[in-house]
């Protein structure tokens, strides 16, 4: 089977698109350069000591031990520390108070994402984060079950999500584009498929997106979608999922109010298209092992079609 590709997104720490990530890549390059030089010198010296017949004077070697073993490392490491630790205060400084704040909860194995609107309302979405470009943003992170770790390699470092605690992370995206975030702390069965989409966009576009997200779900108009909405209720989907504006108010699973606006399914496991959505509903565990959602294999073809039609119009 030919593997199916989601959009071309960056997940590389070496392809930075944020202030933190860029600084860290520079640091990395300096350290690699220094490391290569040190390695060549030490290994070169070792090979020389074996290949070339010895008998060097002991006094010379004493200088070598003190110089090479103690003095040089102390100087090199101190300079490295000064350079690197100088980055810490800035990386840890909270952003200006008017910066956007995103609250993210790690849940086995997906992400509950909450934005604040200007009028003070909390908008919930899942497995997708959108950010305005060239603005600092603060993430408030916690977990609802086990320890997870929130990491968007292209934008900066990671921070763990720990039950009972709130950790914070500041990121500053500098490039418009699509990126991939992942859970970096082993969290059980579907750890490998606990990912999310990140879209960095110009401020006006971001505002449009946020205002769309803050609206309630649209009423289905087509016949099959209407029937799908009814099935969604009857089959009990609302016990776990919320669709704002309907009586589906479950909190166990991801909010689906604007599911169709997202680019992927199952916490960035598969691209969001009709085929994958069908498959997700009927063969959930085949797509993502360990998921707590039961597979709805008992649904017949037409019922699945209707539910998919309903979900696909939730833009």
């Amino acid at each position: 089977m030919r593997p199916e590709l989601i959009d071309d997104v960056s997940q590389s720490a070496l392809d930075p698109a944020g202030v933190g990530a860029t600084q860290i890549v520079d640091l990395f390059h300096w350290m690699v350069g220094g490391g290569v030089v040190i390695w060549l010198i030490v290994v070169g010296l070792s090979v020389y000591s074996i290949v070339v017949p010895g008998g060097h004077r002991p006094r010379l070697t004493k200088t070598l031990v003190i110089g090479g073993g103690a003095v040089v490392p102390t100087v090199v490491l101190s300079s490295l520390l000064c350079y690197a630790l100088a980055m810490l205060p800035e990386l840890h400084r909270p952003p200006p108070s008017d910066s956007p704040t995103v609250k993210v909860n790690g849940v086995r194995w997906w992400w509950r994402v909450q934005y604040q609107t200007d009028d003070g309302r909390t908008i919930e979405t899942a497995n997708e984060i959108r950010l305005p470009v060239d603005e600092a943003v603060e993430f408030k992170l916690t977990s609802e079950d086990v320890i997870h770790s929130f990491w968007i390699p292209s934008l900066g470092g990671k921070v763990d999500m720990i039950p009972g605690r709130e950790t914070r992370l500041k990121l500053y995206p500098t490039r418009v584009g699509k990126f991939r975030g992942v859970c970096a702390e082993y969290c059980g069965t579907a750890h490998a498929q606990m990912r999310f989409d990140v879209t960095v966009m110009p401020r006006p576009e971001f505002n449009r997106w946020l205002s769309n997200q803050s609206s309630d779900a649209r009423e289905p108009s087509q016949q099959s979608a209407i029937r799908g909405g009814e099935l969604f209720r009857r089959k009990g989907c609302g016990a776990c999922h919320t669709i704002r504006g309907t009586d589906a108010r479950g909190r166990v699973g991801p909010d689906l109010t604007h599911l169709a606006s997202r680019s992927s399914l199952g916490a960035a496991t598969k691209p969001n298209n009709t085929e994958n959505l069908r498959h997700w509903i009927t063969h959930t565990h085949h797509v993502k092992p360990g998921v707590t959602m039961p597979a709805f294999q008992a649904l017949d073809e037409r019922e699945v079609d209707a539910i998919v039609a309903y979900l696909e119009q939730l833009h």
Binding site: V42, L45, S46, S49, I50, P53, G54, G55, H56, R57, P58, L60, T61, K62, L64, V65, G68, G69, A70, V72, P73, T74, L77
Partner: peptide
Amino acid sequence: VAIPTGIQLFCFIATLLVGRV
């Protein structure tokens, strides 16, 4: 902790330099 490690490595290298390997 890299410093004591460095000292040990250089002592080994120094020993090889002094001796006839």
